[in-house]
Amino acid sequence: MATSSVQPDLPLVRRLEAVGFRAWPAASVVYDGSWQVRLTGGHPSKRVNCVVPLDPSDHRDLDQRLQKAAKRFADYGRTLVLRETPLAPPVLIQHLERTGWEVFETADVMTVDLSRLELPDTLDYLPSHDIGRFADACLHVAEEDPALKPALAEILSAIKPTSGFFMKQDPSNGAVATVLCVQDNDLAGILSLAVAKSHRRERLGTDMLSSALRWARISGARTAWLQVEATNEAAIALYDRFGFTKAYSYRYWRKS
């Protein structure tokens, strides 16, 4: 990772990584030592198609293990992607740099203390439990291929913690905003927050996020977390307004 004057809280990183895995579960998860190998044949999301090293000291046999992972990804018709968090071995990252790998995306994990937030007394949007309808809404808002619905529904159905599916519907345009809130004990994850291009700058993102966070707090969560691409300035500005602060960053690597 890029050097920083503030070192990440590794126990917090481990906990947020664990709840993140449960909030967006991969279809296949195997371990090579402490490396988690996550694959989902029908859905392209990087979070469910990557290798995630989870112990800074686990850096034995790097070439062999990377080749083994690459073979497993190839069996799924995918190119090997490695997700580097603060738990990744520095020796492994140095090896990637030497052997022609490149970083192609950076994201931030952000958290906020829900007890400190001023949120509406009522929910503007109530959560649904209709997975099929929510999957349709997500794909419509993001303008993604409707053929991804079975794979997305499979991911959503596999989420074990309590989940709330929030949607805003427009009578003439269908779904125009979505957000998923996954409550895992005292932690609530915010995922799939999206607003249709035709309805941006209408405070929908603010209203949807407010409802999800209010629901999470009512349900017993004390801290909310989310993951956002480091280049998504509009989303980061929204989260800043709610008091979210960066806990740590992660990067995706692939062979160049």
Rank of each mutant, 00 (worst) to 15 (best):
S28A: 11
A2I: 09
A69Y: 01
I236R: 15
T206V: 08
S57Y: 05
W253G: 08
D113K: 09
V182T: 14
A196E: 10
L187E: 05
L148A: 02
R98S: 12
L187V: 12
K168Q: 15
V179S: 14
R222G: 07
V103Y: 11
L12G: 04
Q36R: 11
S115N: 12
W215A: 10
A194I: 01
Q94M: 02
S249Y: 08
V91C: 03
G243Q: 01
A27N: 05
A196T: 13
A196Q: 11
H140C: 08
S5I: 15
D108W: 04
A196S: 15
I155D: 13
Y31L: 11
H129S: 15
R22K: 12
R214L: 10
F166E: 03
T99C: 06
T99R: 09
V30D: 06
L213Y: 06
T40D: 02
L82Y: 01
G41Q: 07
T99Q: 09
A188Q: 10
C50G: 01
Y250V: 03
L126I: 05
E144T: 09
V103T: 15
V29P: 03
L180M: 13
I190F: 02
V182D: 10
G243D: 00
S172A: 13
Y125W: 03
D58P: 10
R214K: 12
D9K: 07
V109C: 12
R72K: 14
I93R: 15
I93E: 13
L156M: 15
L114F: 06
T231I: 04
E233H: 07
A88Y: 07
K168C: 15
A107R: 09
G132L: 12
E154R: 14
K46R: 14
A234P: 07
N232M: 04
L87M: 10
K68I: 07
W253R: 05
V112W: 06
T223A: 05
S45M: 04
L148T: 00
P171K: 10
R133W: 01
H95E: 13
A74K: 06
E102H: 11
V91W: 01
L10G: 11
R47A: 08
W101M: 11
F166Q: 08
